[in-house]
Amino acid sequence: MLRTLILRVENRPGALARITGLFSARGINIESLTVARTEDPTLSHMTIVVDLDDVALEKLVKLLDRLVDVVTVTVVDTREAVERELLLLKVRQEPGQKLELLKEAELFRARVVDVAPHSYVLEVTGDEDKLEAFIRVFEKYGILEVVRSGKVALARG
């Protein structure tokens, strides 16, 4: 089951390696990972998505919490946190499909951020479900490339 971890960590060299080292040493794959600094420049905010059961997750959280560089670690689910991901999608643009394609992009509040003779790059943000739906809808046009930022999450309230 996919789980989202939110960490506040010291913004300094080695912190990321220390954290990811805990995962790799135990053979746990990271599904997605984002890191950036926060309102406090000495702190980074990290959102990590992993596929783990409850027991393995509990152990992992304790190990993360044990790290000196990790200030806080919390496990959140979609009800407790706002989760967003940015997706860029390069799609084939055949003559005659342009209007329909743009209309469908509009439905997702996606923006065209690059126009080339035979392709568009669309930008869209949203949660997991929305991005999956977006990809499904655009498959019929011929997807050339998709890149996702990985999820960022912020606890509600």
Binding site: P13, G14, A17, R18, G21, A25, L67, V68
Partner: peptide
Amino acid sequence: VGITRPCTKHNYL
């Protein structure tokens, strides 16, 4: 620091 990261409680460069 890379080599000893998994076998120290903490390390510093």
